[in-house]
Design a protein around this nucleic acid. Structure first.
Lengths: 360, 360
DNA sequence: CATTGATATGAATCCTACG
DNA sequence: ACGTAGGATTCATATCAAT
């Protein structure tokens, strides 16, 4: 038996790649990955005491560093691709030290970038030396498994959360501080790169559905798990460090799932389509009836299958409206008007009337 | 004779790589490169009103696959590296379609990323279909030739331009529209991807000096040249399309150089360093004199070489102040106070007095 | 002339359910 | 799997016409 079920809402302790290999093919709905950097820059901040760094510029060494990191990333990304369902998507976060390795490798592995999202930090750590621009952002890559894969994108939900405007690729979110930042008994931060909950909330809400399985192969203190539970998703975490696991488990246990229009994605519900033909069947329209544009100019008459005859062509309401607007396509429901018992009304109003009377 | 002089403030007509090869080694101070993005779009995209969106359909953006694109970028980036002076820096702009190729290749070629700067566009093209996040940014990579290279960064100038706050890695700049957007006689945009002048202004002002040579191997309509001339730098452009060259030349000819504190970088002028020893020589201080912290607590006495003796150690004013503050380093000029003819004054004030009386 | 409203447009990897 | 047809979808700004 090798089903995904036994891992659901669990934190797997151990190596990332080894444990990814245990998960079955095409078994998770969403992945969020916050991999380590492992780069040369690690030591840079320790060199602020004025002592000159004694390192030699060794090209071979640098290359071997990159190569090792590339191999590591190739390995875990391949496993991620394998465990992703056909229409899953994956988010990977990184900074300039590593994100260009990641992006290149992902493209070569066939991942298809949907967006690169910038997490812009209004309260980032300043550049103390005044030697560069303040590094005030990180980058997230949002990808499908391959070019033609479908994916979940809860567009209306994100638009709603962004005050009615479509969400951009630049997100303004503060770094994780205050009560949200997990500290040990001595008041020291437990994890050096704990991500803010709002970031994970956005990731999960935008690209998954309630009940989905969200995998995080670099679980850390479990921000992904906490937000998955909060929004009614399931999580699977992989983490090596015992201390992080304990903290994460406690944290997730305290979270209560919220059921609202956003996490339940009620905003995304679309009414079933209404074919013109049905409006004829229920006698809202009749064969031969005239249709107009908004200037009350007659365009044509309705055929018995709901198509419009303008004397030249017989086309669907959409094609016919596009023709008369000189466009290649258009939504005909918004274009046509009719005379309904001496009232000049939009065709669209009949569709809403039908939805209310027959589809509720 | 193969000097750089004959190319200065000229637009070279022809292929990018071929013409880069004509430039001598280590001859330019700054490079800005806006290569084709390899957008990989198919078919037509329609606006929500059905009209066709005029995207990038130019031949110059067509490549057969990633491999061909990678080879192209490797070739021009190698030449860029060759013509860069030892302490030059380079900016490359791209979007998610290509920037991960560019960043990976640059790191492998030994370029060292200083910042990745996000050009966040408040007025980007929306996502008409509601299928993804609105792609509202592009990415610039700012790099030196190698890890230990020095570089020009006009920190104070950028801070000044940012209302006194240190400039971030996220820049909010509108896309190029209105009067700035160059149009032909029929009112159609000449170049499909003209960059805003503010973007190039920031690039040039932040990382070059007046009189420097700024190279742009994908010159287009010459925004780089125009901003180089405006700020008192020299430009070299390479461009294949005759039409772009003509427009660029006319445009640059109209530009007048501005001499101000910003383009002349007067903001960056630092007062010369003053050694403590000199203050002793001119009798502003004397050997054995007591020094205090701001609470009038005595810290130690001045040695004849300007060092401070606190009874335990003899250290420079900087190391001594750091020791008493429990820090690894500190600016001693701001820490120490002295008794100057019964006036309790900051040590720093003597430094400014010296600068005014002996160094002007 | 000021204000309002309609129209145009910018580096874009832009649909999906059903048969 | 693939083709077809129904029908869903936009933000900021500049320009120009209309009031």
């Amino acid at each position: 038996m090798n089903t995904i079920d036994k891992y659901i809402n669990k934190i797997i302790k151990g190596d990332c790649i080894e444990n990814l290999k245990k998960l079955p093919d095409e078994s998770v709905d969403l992945i969020f990955a916050d991999p380590p950097y492992f780069m040369q820059t690690e030591g840079e901040l320790h060199r602020t005491n004025g002592a000159k760094f004694q390192g030699v510029e060794d090209e071979w060494d640098k290359f071997s560093d990159y190569r090792e990191y590339d191999e590591f990333c190739t390995a875990w990304l391949k496993e991620c691709k394998r465990v992703m369902k056909k229409n899953s998507s994956i988010w990977v976060i990184g900074s300039f030290q590593n994100i260009y390795r990641i992006g290149y490798i992902m493209q070569n592995l066939g991942f298809w970038i949907l967006n690169d999202v910038i997490w812009s930090k209004p309260n980032a750590v300043p550049n103390f030396g005044g030697t560069r621009f303040q590094n005030s952002h990180e980058t997230l890559l949002w990808c499908t498994k391959n070019k033609n894969a479908k994916y979940i994108f809860n567009y209306k939900t994100m638009k709603h959360l962004n005050n009615g405007k479509q969400e951009k690729s630049v997100w303004n979110i503060g770094i994780c501080i205050g009560n949200e930042r997990i500290k040990d008994k001595e008041g020291k931060k437990v994890h050096s790169t704990q991500k803010p909950e709002k970031l994970l909330y956005n990731v999960i809400i935008s690209s998954s559905r309630p009940g989905d399985i969200v995998l995080d192969p670099f679980f850390g203190t479990g921000t992904t798990g906490a937000m998955a539970k909060l929004t009614g998703r399931n999580y699977i975490g992989i983490e090596r460090e015992e201390e992080y696991i304990n903290v994460a488990q406690e944290r997730i246990d305290r979270v209560k799932t919220i059921h609202d229009d956003i996490s339940d994605l009620k905003l995304e519900i679309k009414p079933p389509k209404v074919p013109m033909e049905k409006l004829l069947k229920v006698k809202y329209l009749k064969e031969g009836q005239e249709v107009f544009n908004k200037y009350k100019e007659k365009i044509g008459t309705i055929e018995n299958n709901g198509y419009i005859n303008d004397g030249e062509d017989i086309l669907s309401i959409h094609k016919m409206s596009a023709k008369h607007l000189g466009l290649s396509n258009n939504n005909g429901w918004d274009y046509f008007w009719i005379n309904d018992n001496n009232q000049f009304i939009e065709l669209n109003s009949l569709r809403y009337k039908f939805q209310n009377n027959f589809q509720n």
